[in-house]
Design a protein around this nucleic acid. Structure first.
Lengths: 177, 177
DNA sequence: CCCGACTATATCAATTCAGATATAGTTTTC
DNA sequence: GAAAACTATATCTGAATTGATATAGTCGGG
């Protein structure tokens, strides 16, 4: 849903090849959006069909031929339209938290183990993002926001696994049927 | 990737129908994982093929016939295996933040508008989750974690939109690349 | 000169996900 | 007593996403 617009946003800066887009997305946009190279070529083809980008082939004078994509005026309009549109509800999907949601079925020591595993995964991701060179402009801000979210998750996990008892939290309101 | 395991986790509690699973996922698991009803039936069929659940048909004595699914011992083993497995790196996809990453291309007043839009969307989601009756046990904890993440995003958005200047952030301090 | 690494474009199959639609009985409401 | 809403199962289309693979040129070492 958003990939074509992420591509338009990157191309708004300056023209790029598909391969280049894949690299920039991985290095600079990644925590906020990600895409495999195999997704990018079809997306570019579609953007081209819709007239949002144009393609210039750089002949194979030195190197393999390169397809350089450039945003059109229509592409910039579409980018603008998308930016001003209200974002959809957050997707909310977290493999790590999904595991924690079903911790009831494990013994207490194993619960601790899973929580530590989640904490580790989150910490690794934070370190990875903090270690990488920060992008410029609002791409940096957006990445920062993603890190803040991860740090909130880590704080939460630490607080929970630091609790003396990891008994199944009882329902405070009593059970309904 | 995780949906079959979420289903196993819910069935570990007690047997349920597909429709019931859809309802519980939406009401109790949602911020952490979500699934349309159209995803659940195929997932159940596959779990059945793999011997992780069995199906008992409740004849249409009163009402339409209901397919009640129950976890098998193999299903519980698979659930346990998945719970103890290290979670993958967080997916990191956020439509709202993706917009913010490309704010450079807009005029300053519009940047503020987009930030407010993000803040609103996040706030609405928090309110929705806080308003709904909390689930039991670790499902409640996991939802709480999801809310913490959302609140971190909101704090970040507020801090940014409260800034007097929303000029494109230069590589702060750093002397260019 | 060959090997491996890197740049580059591209396709394929498989899965996941979203949205819509079809059917049918039951319960609630006007 | 008819309409509307709810429970319930199920399928279909299309799009998004993932992971793997194929091709081919350039560049630096050994």
């Amino acid at each position: 849903m958003s990939l074509p617009h992420v591509i338009l946003g990157l191309l708004a800066d300056h023209p790029r090849t598909g391969y280049d887009l894949a690299r920039v997305i991985e290095e600079e946009v990644e925590p906020v959006w990600k895409a495999e190279i195999s997704q990018i070529y079809p997306a570019l083809a579609r953007l081209r069909r819709e007239g949002h980008v144009v393609l210039r082939v750089l002949g194979p004078r030195r190197g393999p031929h390169r397809n350089l994509y450039r945003v059109t005026a229509a592409g910039r309009r579409e980018l603008r339209r998308w930016l001003l549109e209200a974002p959809p509800r957050p997707r909310g999907r977290d493999d790590g938290l999904a595991r924690i949601a079903f911790l009831d079925t494990l013994e207490v020591p194993e619960r601790r183990q899973v929580l530590r595993g989640y904490e580790t995964t989150v910490s690794e991701e934070i370190a990875r993002l903090r270690g990488a060179p920060p992008p410029d402009g609002f791409r940096r801000e957006a990445r920062e926001a993603a890190v803040e979210k991860l740090e909130a998750a880590r704080r939460w996990a630490r607080a929970l696994s630091g609790r003396p008892s990891l008994a199944s939290p009882a329902s405070s309101g009593g059970k309904k049927k």
